[in-house]
Every structure is written in C-alpha cells, then in structure tokens.
Simulated scan of single mutants.
Amino acid sequence: MNLPNLLTLFRFILIPLYLGLFFSDVPHRMLWAFGVLLLAGLTDVIDGYLARKNGQVTQLGIMLDPLADKLMMLAVFLSLLISGRITLTAAAAIFIRDLGMIIASAIFHFRGKITVPANVMGKLTTVLYYVALSLLIFDVPDAEKFLWGVIAFSFLTSLIYLFQFKLINQRSM
C-alpha cells in the first residue's frame, strides 16, 4: 500500500467525521464540517500529485480515488438535503449521476476493463462542486442556481468520460 492510496483511504474516514460534525451541536459546526471538507479536497490533490510524481499510479488508486470523492460528495449533498439547503430534485440529480458513475466504474473494473483516470474536466467538475458546496454550507444567496450549473456540467463530463472509456477499451482489444 503506497502513500497516495493511504491518503485516499483516509478520505473515506473523513466522510463520517464530516457528517458527525455537520449534524452536531458543536460550536461553529459548519466551519468544522467545512474544514473537514477542505481537508478531503486537499488530500485528493496531494494523493494525485504524489502518485504521478513518484510513479505510484495503481489500478486500485484509479478506482478508489474517484470513489472516495463521490462518496464524500454524496455525504455532503445528503447533509445539505436533510438540512433543507438544497431541494430533493437537485439531490436526486447528483445522486443519480454519482451512483451511476460509481456502479459503472465498479462493473468496468471487475470485468477487467481499463478505467479512465481522472481528467481535466473531471477535476474541474470536482472544483466547481466544492465551490457550490461552500456556497451552500454558508447559505449564500443563489447558491442552488450555481449548483444547477455545476450539475449540468457534471453530466457533460460524465458523457465525455464514457466516450473516453469506450475509446480506450476499443484500442486495447
């Protein structure tokens, strides 16, 4: 197990920590929850950088890294739904897209297909989701309108990802 993969596993631990803080009575709970979210984002950047820099990119990491990202995002959006900061429609769109990506990645991986690593569009989608989450956590006006733009962009990136997956697996046959 290399350091980038350990950092990815650490992000899985941050998910219940975020939820615990978000729904707690701790003073400044939103700041603490937001801090955990930022830590998750920072470890995501660091593990990817270290994996590429040190030649430690692994199939396990390629599969676990986006899974950790998506599960964290799902947890955050679930907390925002439960707290009334986003509508059920927005949450459903996000859940459908992310669960679809998780299930498809797992199926492809276990069928021995080559998984497409994160690309610039996927990274931009993640950054935009973090901006939207920040706006929503701190109740910024029109945050959900911005979120809908990010949701639309995320569906576009999913289509691009599926196209790349098809191309990379056709070439490897």
Results as ranks from 00 to 15, higher is better:
Ala33Tyr: 02
Thr58Trp: 07
Ile94Thr: 06
Gly20Met: 07
Leu60Trp: 14
Leu167His: 14
Asp65Asn: 08
Val120Gln: 11
Leu7Phe: 09
Leu167Ser: 15
Met101Val: 12
Ile107His: 01
Gly112Trp: 07
Leu128Glu: 03
Gly35Pro: 00
Trp148Asn: 04
Asn54Ser: 03
Phe155Pro: 02
Gly41Thr: 02
Gln164His: 12
Leu37Pro: 00
Ser172Pro: 00
Ser83Arg: 13
Pro4Cys: 04
Ala106Met: 10
Phe95Ser: 14
Ile46Arg: 01
Arg52Thr: 00
Phe165Tyr: 14
Ile160Gly: 00
Ala91Cys: 13
Phe22Glu: 05
His28Glu: 14
Gln59Leu: 12
Ile107Ser: 01
His109Pro: 00
Ile160Gln: 12
Phe22Leu: 10
Leu9Gly: 14
Ser24Arg: 07
Leu99Gly: 14
Asp139Gly: 04
Asp44Ala: 03
Leu17Gly: 04
Gly100Cys: 08
Ser158Ala: 15
Leu78Asn: 15
Leu135Pro: 05
Gly149Met: 10
Lys123Pro: 01
Phe108Lys: 05
Asn169His: 03
Asp47Trp: 01
Gly20Pro: 10
Gly61Leu: 06
Ala51Cys: 01
Val116Gln: 07
Ile62Phe: 01
Phe77Cys: 10
Met121Leu: 13
Leu133Val: 13
Val57Pro: 02
Leu80Lys: 05
Leu74Arg: 08
Met101Gly: 03
Ile46Ser: 02
His28Thr: 07
